[in-house]
Design a protein around this nucleic acid. Structure first.
Length: 402
DNA sequence: CTTCCACAGGAAGGTCTGGCGG
DNA sequence: CCGCCAGACCTTCCTGTGGAAG
């Protein structure tokens, strides 16, 4: 698929033409989302607001807690990191004891008080075992050490949504009352705009003393940002007419997600480079779009535990019988038979129901609870992937399971 | 209007793994 | 080695419920 448009050549020809061509990339990192640019365009307002909220930390006062909302790729993480960096360097200059600490709750799997405290402690160079100790033991260590170090701490909790089920947030809001020598303020970042709706009102009012909303970027802004990055990342001769505009337009359609635009451009370049084409053009972007989608699905499917894979395969199996929308009961039945065939002990329907929810959250299926009146209440379950991705998934699962 | 289906999804608790300090 | 701990993963038991059928 990646070799679309390439005629049959000898390998020697291929290598020659590859070498004779300048690489598309000057610095690929600039298109990756780990990259932190020197400036953050179109986010001045948010930067200033956040800086104003955090500034009291420079006088040794505890800044208000902040809640930041905005969809993915709207610059929340970037702005937070940027402001924190500036704040810290200012603090160092004037010799204030102020530290900022960033953690991504989802990626670092910080979903229990224990882990949050452990992570915090490792930040001030105290290592504690990852498990084994009682939580209140860790808490005691935490209080002791944090008071020893002292000063103002600004804690950035990215993707704070993952903490909502647990009592982490509640404990966090109370932590300051136990501190004698240190002050902690919290920046919570969420891409779920309704996040605080189902939050305990006390936690809500405490955590969102201030709120910032990051609106999506529009197509022009995305293009602007993309051009900036492309200047750093790519050789100018390699970018075809309209390529950047197309990436921007597609990302703007999505929901103003810059990360998406950057991914599109980067993958499009990789495809073009592999094809030994001269420039990245709009077709490469289309191809990139497909590839990103497939890669996403494949990655999820592969890393799913066996039982979950069987559940997904059951849904695919039903789809192949031309049943587009299926109910939980049907899936469970197929799943049950499949387990027996493979020789695995099947899980209960209760558990399978949860697995279906998880697959829904991962975005490989779509499920909606509907009532069919007399015929009960169940989920309508649909696959949520492109035909190509579906084919690939089916292939992988068949390989893994049978 | 009531009934009643086919589940959703909460609560509590069990089992297992990996790790602790003594 | 022991008793204990956190956390992942499941089971059991349970109450709740939207709306077509009667």
């Amino acid at each position: 698929m990646l070799w679309v448009g390439m005629k049959q050549k000898t390998l020697e020809d291929l290598f020659d033409s590859f070498l004779s061509k300048q690489s598309f990339f000057i610095s690929k990192q600039a298109l990756q989302d780990t990259y932190t640019p020197d400036t953050v365009p179109h986010r001045n307002e948010q930067i200033n607001q956040l800086a104003a909220i955090l500034a009291p930390g420079l006088r040794g006062d505890r800044p208000s807690n902040v809640f930041i909302y905005g969809k993915t790729g709207t610059g929340k993480t970037l702005v937070s990191k940027f402001v924190c960096q500036e704040l810290e360097s200012k603090a160092i200059k004037q010799n204030t004891s102020l530290k900022t600490l960033y953690m991504n709750c989802k990626m670092e799997k910080i979903n229990t008080p224990y882990r949050l405290l452990a992570r915090f402690l490792s930040f001030i160079d105290i290592e504690v075992p990852p498990t084994g100790l009682p939580t209140d033991e860790i808490y005691k260590i935490f209080l002791r050490e944090i008071n020893k170090v002292g000063g103002v701490f600004t804690l950035v909790l990215d993707e704070i949504d993952t903490l909502v089920e647990t009592d982490v947030l509640y404990n966090l809001t109370r932590i300051n009352t136990e501190l004698t020598n240190a002050k902690i303020s919290i920046i919570g970042i969420s891409n779920d705009l309704n996040f605080t709706n189902n939050l305990d009102p006390r936690i809500k009012s405490s955590l969102s003393e201030e709120e910032l909303v990051f609106p999506p970027y529009n197509a022009i802004q995305i293009q602007d940002i993309l051009l900036d990055r492309a200047k750093i990342a790519l050789s100018p001769t390699s970018i075809g007419e309209g390529t950047i505009a197309k990436c921007s337009a597609l990302a703007a359609q999505e929901h103003g997600d810059v990360r998406r635009a950057l991914d599109l451009l980067r993958v499009a370049c990789e495809i073009a480079e592999r094809n030994v084409d001269i420039k990245v053009n709009e077709e490469h972007v289309d191809e990139a779009m497909r590839k990103i989608d497939i890669d996403r699905v494949v990655e999820i499917v592969k890393t799913q535990p066996r039982q979950s894979q069987i559940v997904l395969y059951s849904i695919i199996y039903l789809k192949e019988l031309n049943k587009n929308e299926v109910a939980t009961g049907e899936v469970f039945e197929v799943y049950h038979n499949l387990c027996k065939q493979i020789g695995l002990v099947p899980l209960t329907q209760r558990r399978v129901s949860d697995l279906i929810s998880e697959l829904d959250m991962l975005g490989v299926i779509n499920s909606l609870v509907v009532s069919k009146g007399r015929y009960g209440r169940t989920r309508k379950i649909k696959l949520d992937m492109t035909p190509v991705a579906l084919e690939k998934t089916s292939e992988i699962l068949r390989g893994e399971l049978l």
